[in-house]
Each structure stands twice: as structure tokens, then as C-alpha cells.
Amino acid sequence: MNTFANPVENASVFGSVHLGYLVVETNRFTEWRRFGTDAIGMHHDDLDTGLMRFRLDDQECRFLLRRGPAEDVVATGWHLDDHTTFEQIEARVRAHGVPCVEGTAEEAKQRGVERLLRFPGPKGIAQEIYTSPVRSPEPLKMLSSGWVTGDSGMGHVAITSARPTLMRGYFTTVFDARLTDYIDETISGARLKIRFLRVNERHHSIAIAAVRGLPIDPVRTRVQHLNIQAASLDDLARSYERVHELGFDMALSVGQHTNDKELSYYARTPSGFEWEVGWNPVVVDEATWEPSTHQGISVWGHLPVGRTIVDKLDQFRLGALSLARPERTVPALSGAGIPDD
């Protein structure tokens, strides 16, 4: 357990942290524009030839896409309730000897925020914190009727890891993340353990999946999938239909999860990681919630779409290659890792 010299720094920030935006680096702007606006149904804004944004609500930016070769999520932005929380988290990071960098005025403008700080995160995903999102007066132009954000944040990210206890330790140290539950699942013969962490009332803002007993990572991208929450079942169904009609790859069909009860599907983005559109997950009641373990990720559905034996072999190949490519961690912020309960 981490302790800090200043009692204010040691006060919990749980509940004051919300997933705010993601930064994606890609050279596939044309495909991403079609995917985000015409398939998923978000609002789209072009900033210049090398930048574009998607909106879900009145916040100016929920997804920032910048030109580059990564074809991956490269930064996660966390909206903090106030300057006190901002300063607590900054003090924690600096107290552990981890460098923080103030975002430039241009970087803050691109993300639609007023105060921006960046520091290293697991798997090379930069963690960015901010306090005041800029609200846009421009009405939303999108195919969806709306998306659930607010106190729950805008959704979640799921990450595969060969060092899951260190990753859980990182988010516990920095954001006071709490364990919601576990899922045990077997996929293509591999036994997975998935840890679900929350930083507010949303069932989870971070999911960490690991292969049991093997320090391998079978996914090329840093983020395995990201999630946004549709305002209605009709929105989910219509976006599912559009993904099919426009010819984008579907990773998993519609299904319902065992732990958060969310109804959802998974599409494959132009960059290769997956995009989950969900509806109606449970909201955690802190007074009564107890972590538990669920067997299997789905009550029904979530069936693989179009997977071949070649796809499965490629996953095993990526897992083997990961043994020679040590996962990037931030040991100073991860402690000795958080052991499973």
C-alpha cells in the first residue's frame, strides 16, 4: 500500500475520476471517418489535414485522431472533478519519481481541455489528466440519439497484459481504482483471467485480461478494445446494422455480459483494435457491492464473426513474439503489484 507524506495527497480520489477522451494515432483517416460517423454514428469534426475529432456529447473532444504509424490508442485522458484532485494525482506521480509534462496550449486545444498534464502509463499508453473540458455550442450532427457519459465517464478500455498485477497496481496507486470483479474464460484453448477496475460508479473503466500461467500478450495493439455506451437499445441495434451494411468487420455478435449485464457487440476498427458499443450496464452501489468471479464473459451471444484457423494461429504467433518483447510498465507507480483477492 502506498503512503504519502502529505495527508491531502493520501486522500482518496475515487469517484472524482472519469474516462474523458482517447487519442488514436492512425494513417487511415478516410476509413476512420466512415467508421466513426456512418457506422458508429458519432459527431465528426476535421481540425486540419492531420487531426480530426469525434464527439459524443457537448464536450468538444471524446476521440482525437492524429496522423501517425501506430494504428493504436496512444493516450488516455481522465477528467478530474476539480483542481484539488488534479493536484493530488500530480503530487502522487511526482512523489514516486515519475516525470510529469505540462501539455502545451495547442495540445490542450486539440483535446478540448483547459489544463493538461501527461505522465507515463502501462504498455506505453500515456496517461493525461485534465480538469475543465471545453463545451461546444455547436449542435451535434450524428446518427445516434445520444451516448451515456456524465458521472460514469464515457465508457471503458480493455487491455491485455503479461504483467496484470503491476497494471492493476498502477491504476490503484494513481487513481484509487477499486476491484469490481473477475471473469475466468477459455478462448481457443487459452485460459484467461480478466480483472475489472472502477474509478467511479461505472462497473469498470479499465479491464485487464491476462493468459493464466503464461507471461504472453496475444494482441498486437496496446488496447484490445474500447467501449462507449449507447443511450438506447434502438441506437445499439441501428449501429450494429450500419456496421454490417458498410462492410466493416464484426469481431463479436450481439450478446450480454455475465458481470455488468451490458448488452453489446464488438466491431473491428480501421486500426485493428475492437470497438464495443454497449447498452444498459449495471451501476455499482458502493454500499453493497462485493467482488466476485464469473465463469465466461457472456450469458449469451458475443459469438466470433468470420474467424478462421489462420486468425487463431496468428494470435498464437503474436503471443510467442511477445515473449521476446518485454511489456512496458511503470514500476515506480505499480508497487509490487496488487495480488488477486
Score class of each variant (00 low, 15 high):
185 E>A: 12
286 E>N: 11
26 T>D: 02
25 E>T: 01
159 I>T: 06
15 G>M: 03
13 V>G: 10
324 A>L: 14
89 I>R: 05
242 R>N: 13
184 D>I: 02
214 L>R: 09
235 D>Q: 08
123 K>I: 00
325 R>T: 10
97 G>H: 15
192 L>V: 06
93 V>R: 04
190 A>K: 08
6 N>H: 13
232 S>E: 04
307 R>C: 08
240 Y>N: 11
139 P>T: 02
78 W>P: 02
277 V>A: 13
212 R>T: 05
205 S>C: 05
252 L>R: 13
251 A>T: 04
157 V>H: 01
168 R>G: 07
266 Y>E: 09
109 K>H: 15
100 C>Q: 03
97 G>Y: 14
99 P>V: 00
330 V>W: 11
121 G>C: 04
27 N>C: 08
4 F>L: 06
98 V>L: 14
149 T>R: 02
245 E>Q: 14
229 Q>I: 12
48 D>C: 10
223 V>P: 06
315 Q>S: 09
17 V>T: 03
281 P>F: 15
306 G>H: 14
288 T>K: 12
167 M>Q: 15
252 L>V: 02
287 A>E: 15
114 E>P: 03
231 A>L: 11
209 A>C: 01
186 T>G: 03
299 V>S: 11
285 D>E: 08
176 D>P: 05
61 C>H: 07
43 H>L: 00
269 T>V: 07
182 Y>C: 05
313 L>D: 05
207 A>K: 02
104 T>M: 09
110 Q>I: 00
257 H>N: 14
264 S>Q: 09
140 L>T: 01
22 L>V: 13
147 W>Q: 04
239 S>C: 12
12 S>Y: 13
226 L>I: 10
228 I>R: 05
202 R>Y: 04
109 K>F: 09
135 R>D: 01
155 G>I: 04
315 Q>W: 05
269 T>G: 13
283 V>Q: 14
12 S>E: 07
122 P>N: 00
90 E>T: 05
319 G>H: 10
64 L>V: 04
287 A>Q: 15
222 R>C: 09
322 S>F: 06
211 V>C: 07
340 D>I: 02
330 V>M: 09
16 S>E: 15
127 Q>G: 02
111 R>S: 12
196 F>I: 00
